[in-house]
Structure formats: C-alpha cells, structure tokens
C-alpha cells in the first residue's frame, strides 16, 4: 500500500497539479492571514483564525483530494489495482495519499496563524486544539473530494459541480435542523471565536461529530469505489 501511496503522491507532485491548491493557499495567507491580530487582546482573534483556517481549507482540501485521485489515468488506476492485488488496498492507498498531501497543505496554511497565536500568548492547549481540528477537517475534506473523483463520477462536467455543490450543501446543512448530517462547521467557528477556553471546551464534541461523519462518508466511499476501480 505504501508503494502505491508514494506513486500517487509522486504523480501528483510531478504533474504540478499541486500548484493549484498551493496558489490558493498562498493568496489567502498573503492577503488575509498576514494581516493578523495584534495588540494586547490579540489572543481571542488569533484563536478565531485557527477555526477560520479549518473552515476555508475544507473546500480546498476536497479540491486537492479530487485532483490527486484524478491524476492517474483510468487505465493506470486499473494497472495499479492489479499490481497491489486487492481493490480495497488501492482505494485505501488513494485516500491515504490524498490525506497526506492535505495534511502538508494544511501545515502550510496554518504556519502563519500558529505563529501569530503563539506570539499573542494563546495557551498551548488551544494551539494544539487548532492543529487537531485541522487534521480532522482535512480528513472530512479529503472524503468529500474523493466522492467527486473520476472513479465515482466519471464525467468531469458533473464532478466539479458536484464538488462545489457538496461544499455548499455541507455549509447550508450545518445551519439548519439537519446540522447533524453535515460537518460541524458552525459549531467549531462559534467555539473558536468564543476565545481559547470555549475553543478547547467545545473541541471534544466537534471532534466526535467529525470522526463519525468521516467514518460514515469514508466507509460508503470505500464500498462504492471498490467496485469501480
């Protein structure tokens, strides 16, 4: 599985597709995050920024995952699956490669906000909570992107609208009474903007929701992708 993960990541990096999310992240870092909070009350907005990063990175992570999974031509996907022998290994390797790349992209996006949080005197627990939140949201974003990859939606004219529609649907569902069906974006934004204490206290509930959401969506993806390799 690790050999296939390496192959997928190498293909994504060498094809330069990785530049697409990198450019978006660089723009957001330069235009928004570098104008970070300052002054004596900077800790509270600095924690809020950690929640904001996870929110705006959610669609970027989904987009990057779709890009990585679609880098292999269809025929190569068949050859890779034959080489590793078992379909679930090929599907799992794809998810692992996409998640690994997304964690790296997340670290780049978080670099400036984490530095600002440390300089603003944000408690270490809140800083670690921000990292943990991003790691969990990256997994959810990866799975949304995987569901719109070519193995599931072969028509590129449908898969991109499905990606955008999925991201919007997740956001809108999170507002109404069906919020439990969506990723808890509103919940983590609310707790992050409530200060370091509220952010840390609200994290277990948000984390549990994200883990359950990812388990259900990921399990359904593996079942669907196994028969489409």
């Amino acid at each position: 599985m690790i050999a296939l993960v390496r192959f997928l990541v190498a293909g994504y990096l060498w094809s330069a597709r990785v530049l697409q999310p990198l450019i978006v992240i660089a723009l957001i870092v330069v235009v928004v995050l570098l104008q970070g909070p300052g002054g004596p009350d900077a800790a509270e907005p600095a924690v809020g920024t950690l929640g904001d990063v996870a929110a705006f990175m959610f669609p970027v992570w989904a987009w990057a995952a779709r890009g990585l999974l679609d880098t292999q031509p269809d025929e190569q996907r068949a050859l890779s699956a034959t080489a590793v022998g078992r379909r679930w290994v090929a599907v799992g390797a794809g998810l692992l490669a996409a998640y690994g790349v997304n964690l790296a992209l997340g670290m780049i996006a978080l670099l400036v906000p984490l530095l600002q949080a440390v300089l603003a005197g944000v408690p270490v627990t809140a800083v670690l909570t921000g990292c943990g939140l991003s790691a969990l949201v990256a997994a959810a974003g990866t799975l949304l992107g995987a569901w719109t990859s070519r193995a599931i939606i072969p028509n590129p004219g449908l898969s991109l609208p499905a990606l955008l529609g999925g991201a919007v649907a997740v956001l809108l569902l999170g507002i109404g009474r069906l919020a439990w069906l969506s990723v808890p974006m509103i919940a983590w934004l609310r707790s992050a903007h409530g200060g370091p204490g509220a952010f840390v206290d609200g994290f277990p509930g948000v984390a549990l929701h994200l883990v359950l959401w990812s388990a259900v969506v990921g399990g359904a993806y593996v079942a669907a992708a196994r028969v489409r390799v």
């Binding site: 296939l4 390496r6 192959f7 293909g11 330069a16 292999q72 080489a83």
Partner: peptide, 23 residues
C-alpha cells in the same frame, strides 16, 4: 492494456521502479 497510459509524469525507469515496488 491495449493502450498503455503514457500520459504520466514519470520516466520509463521511474515508472517501472514504482510498479516494481507495488509488487
């Protein structure tokens, strides 16, 4: 396959090395 998917960002040696590692 009937048509080998050559549109990939690897050299021949690099590609076969990845495939050998997978196997």
């Amino acid at each position: 396959p009937e048509r080998f998917p050559a549109d990939q960002p690897f050299t021949v040696g690099g590609y076969l090395s990845h495939m050998a590692a997978m196997r």
